[in-house]
């Protein structure tokens, strides 16, 4: 378990009272974002995302399979996250824990409920053949705010991905062709995470801020400026006004974040 010294905690609180943050950013400033697409040639899509020093890679593998019985005309997107010890001394080997499960599910919901990828576009033959997209997120360095960094790398992966073309013959046999096509999509959603420390709320917390925060609120803003997912976590509380203020701030901050995503 990571710890923080009393003196650092106090220093951070004093700074926040004065409207400043420990790394010199303003309350609504994101760390620099850097995205490196197509880092894995054998994957159908991949991207590395840097959010300050936090570093995440996502790779996407594609296969052809059957749709779920209740959604016969929709493809399937499966998101997982791996918090292996290479990313932080506090990560341990073993099956995904609570943090990894939450991370993958929050990223998944942010993408699923946006207009970004229509899953009906991932249907090849209704009821029998659809694309199955496996988005696997690996944390390479945790310096705070894994949700936003993972979301960025997952979105960038989808934006730069290529799906193999598939032919289904009359007997229902699918053949994967050597040709590729880009995924159809709308403007991407962006996840923005806020940390509440005492009465201050800052965006994109670094690790030391996460150690002292009581509550975290992640908000995903879709390409059309609507909200498409939220997740409060941590053992603190939020007032209605705080929630609505965060949403308002997210709608402003999202404009800056969008400009750094890869162009299509």
């Amino acid at each position: 378990m990571d710890i923080i010294s009393e003196i650092e905690r106090e220093r951070m609180n004093e700074l926040l009272q004065a409207g400043k943050r420990i790394d010199g950013r303003g309350f609504d400033d994101l760390r620099p974002i850097k995205i490196v697409p197509n880092i894995v040639s054998k994957a159908e899509g991949s991207a590395e995302a840097w959010l300050g020093e936090t570093r995440v890679i996502t790779g996407m593998k594609v296969s052809i399979g059957q749709p779920f019985p209740d959604t016969p005309n929709e493809g399937v997107v499966v998101t997982s996250a791996e918090l292996s010890p290479i990313g932080s001394p506090s990560f341990e080997l073993g099956p995904p824990g609570e943090q990894a499960i939450e991370l993958a599910r929050v990223v998944d919901r942010g993408i699923r409920h946006s207009n970004f990828i229509q899953r009906t576009k991932l249907c090849i033959a209704e009821g029998t053949h659809v694309y199955l997209l496996f988005l696997d997120i690996y944390i390479l360095a945790d310096h705070g705010n894994l949700i936003d960094a993972s979301h960025l790398s997952a979105v960038a992966t989808l934006m730069t991905s290529q799906l193999p073309k598939v032919e289904v013959d009359e007997e229902g046999n699918a053949t994967i062709l050597e040709e590729f096509m880009p995924l159809e999509m709308e403007a991407p959603p962006i996840a923005l995470t806020f940390a509440k420390i005492n009465d201050s709320i800052v965006v994109d917390p670094i690790s030391t801020e996460e150690l002292v925060m009581s509550t975290r609120l992640s908000i995903t803003i879709d390409g059309d400026d609507t909200i498409c997912s939220m997740q409060k976590s941590g053992s603190g509380t939020l007032t209605r006004q705080e929630i609505l203020d965060c949403v308002e701030r997210a709608c402003q901050i999202v404009k800056k974040a969008r400009s750094v995503l890869p162009k299509r």
Binding site: R109, R112, H113, S114, N115, L217, D222, D225, T226, I227, C228, S229, M230, Q231, K232, T237, L238, T239, R240, I243, L244, V247, E248, C251
Partner: peptide, 12 residues
């Protein structure tokens, strides 16, 4: 508020 999640689409 001690629990808050959302999925779907809403304007602010």
């Amino acid at each position: 508020y001690t629990l808050l999640q959302m999925d779907g689409k809403l304007s602010k």
